[in-house]
């Protein structure tokens, strides 16, 4: 997979705004962002209300995903370009989610909403409704999704990559520092996990660093590309960003995103937890 098959820049986006084979999708958790303005022609996906089951902690079913994308006017052979706020965290999560359900051609707008805004590019407030389609999804590709038992078995065996900030990894913060810190999980990280914050992979404007820089970041932090890898964060969206880097940009094999992440692992009874800046022992 090469970078230009999975990532587009603003110039490419502008050249394809009227291309009927391309659908732009803004993905946020803060729905007010899209309501205020968005890229011309973009439809909206809500990270929470559209992509989460709502009762159980899990994703929507294949049938519900088909109904959702059909309602949004997306076809399985569309090129879907995702972008959003939070340095594309939720767009990367949606990217991974689209891949989970087998969408063939999905790409990220490099830098997402932030880079677009900081460059003063046009945003519009007209809400777009594309004609409904019949979308056909595939069964979930579980080769890219890790569950808690996979993670426990991976301790000391596979690459575990904790992509949260150093303070969250060490247990000094329980959540990203834009959120209140009172949380129900214990603090710390999964023993043997390397701390490679997602932010190391992106420039200040949210765009991804070069492949050479990205590879060096992981190798210097001890990731062995001959081993399988599981990435996690707090709820799986920052780690989807790092999954995108490892699997889609760097082409690493057998990389899975643990969407349960610390909100699940940090609540499990009897599992090992490491505190402090070091990975800890298996």
């Amino acid at each position: 997979m090469s970078r230009n098959e999975v990532l587009v820049d603003a110039e490419w986006a502008i050249a394809h705004l009227a291309d009927e084979t391309v659908v732009f999708v803004e993905v946020d958790e803060d729905t007010a962002a899209y309501d205020t303005n968005h890229i011309s022609g973009a439809v909206r996906l809500d990270w929470k209300s559209d992509l989460q089951d709502g009762t159980r902690r899990d994703f929507v079913s294949k049938e519900a995903f088909e109904a959702l994308l059909g309602k949004k006017g997306i076809l399985a052979d569309h090129t879907v370009v995702l972008y959003g706020g939070n340095n594309n965290w939720f767009a990367a999560y949606a990217y991974w989610y689209f891949k989970l359900y087998g969408h063939k051609d999905v790409r990220l707008l490099d830098g997402g909403r932030k880079k677009w805004e900081l460059e003063g590019r046009e945003l519009v407030s007209d809400v777009v409704e594309l004609p409904a389609t019949t979308y056909v999804a595939q069964e979930q590709d579980l080769s890219i999704r890790a569950f808690r038992d996979d993670v426990i078995k991976a301790i000391g065996v596979q690459n575990l990559v904790d992509v949260r900030s150093p303070d969250e990894y060490a247990g000094r913060l329980l959540a990203p520092a834009h959120l209140p810190q009172e949380q129900s999980q214990v603090a710390g990280h999964i023993p043997t996990a390397a701390n490679i914050p997602w932010s190391k992979t992106a420039a200040e404007d949210g765009s991804f660093k070069s492949d050479e820089e990205l590879k060096a970041i992981y190798e210097n932090a001890g990731v062995d590309f001959d081993k399988d890898t599981i990435a996690y964060c707090r709820i799986g969206e920052r780690s989807a960003h790092s999954w995108f880097v490892l699997h889609e940009l760097l082409g690493a094999k057998n990389v899975r995103n643990y969407d349960g992440s610390w909100t699940e692992y940090g609540s499990l009874v009897g599992v090992p937890v490491a505190l402090g800046d070091e990975p800890g022992q298996a």
């Binding site: 958790e29 989460q52 959120l179 964060c233 709820i235």
Partner: peptide, 12 residues
Amino acid sequence: MSSCGAVVGGVS
């Protein structure tokens, strides 16, 4: 499950 999303202007 609460999101990690940053609220515009910060959480109230």
